[in-house]
Amino acid sequence: MPRQAAKVKSRKNPSKFTKTIRNHGKDALNSLLRMARTPLSSTMTIVVIAAALLLPSLLFSLNANISQLLAQFQNNARVVLYLNESTTDSRGIEVSESLLTLSDIDSAAFISSNEALQDFSSAAGFTDIVAELDKNPLPSSIVITPNLNAMEGLDQLAETLQAIPEVDLVQVDSQWLRRLAAISDLIELVARILGLIVVLSLCFIVGNTVRLHIENRRDEIRIIKLVGGTHSYIARPFLYTGFFYGIIGGILAGLLQAAVFLAFSDSIATIARLYDSSFQLQLLTPVILISLALAGGLMGWIAAMIAAYRRIGAINP
């Protein structure tokens, strides 16, 4: 019995929180319905927002893919030690085996000068030329696979190896990896700057749209002010409008990005195959989609807030 009484009471006099939630829900729904009532202009605004978000997002994703690629190649990085001419094959094998005790090295393979010459002649079809040589010009070498993740470590390792007396020259084939890493850094910087510009332009796009919405409903706002509507009551539906524009624009940007990547995926897969890589372009991860949608929604909300409070304050009953 007392429980029933409480139930009736709660229905009649809901808490402030319940009221707020209910009002917000109603305003959100009304904003959506209003957007649906002007499909052309709503669509155009959303497409513009999506296009603006797409550019930095594409760059960030491109960069993420390059980083993934870099990590993959870094694991495959090889270091070649060319040995002195005076080093005998047996000494070379000894050095090679001693290298395996270093923790940074996964594998080390000794290639004698004769083996190198055989490889060279068969691989390159230089059999005739090799036959004419009276002396083997190739040195013995040791090919090492390091197990390092960072480029810096590789440099140190190279220095250590150079100190071995039998080693004539250390060749680290990391130059192009370094270049790629530098390009990747540059892309990230550009993406950041572009992101900043996009944030600003989105504020203008959404702010301007919200301003137009407010102008269209000037009379309504005047009347609501006359009967005691607070600024936040009046602004709320417009904030939802900005929020929805942003969030839908963000989702659309994510889908567009997937489409762009899909268009590239075939050619990239071909290149990856040629390079013997298992690299795969990441199409659309949920993380990207969610962060795009949230970023768009948040920006839309803030931009609408700035625009709405200024415009609404300027309308006098």
Binding site: R11, K19, T20, N23, V227, G228, G229, T230, Y233
Partner: peptide
């Protein structure tokens, strides 16, 4: 209902 809506009245009320 506008003034009631503004004051956050329960819909039924």
């Amino acid at each position: 209902a506008l003034p009631l809506d503004i004051s956050g009245f329960d819909r039924r009320d």
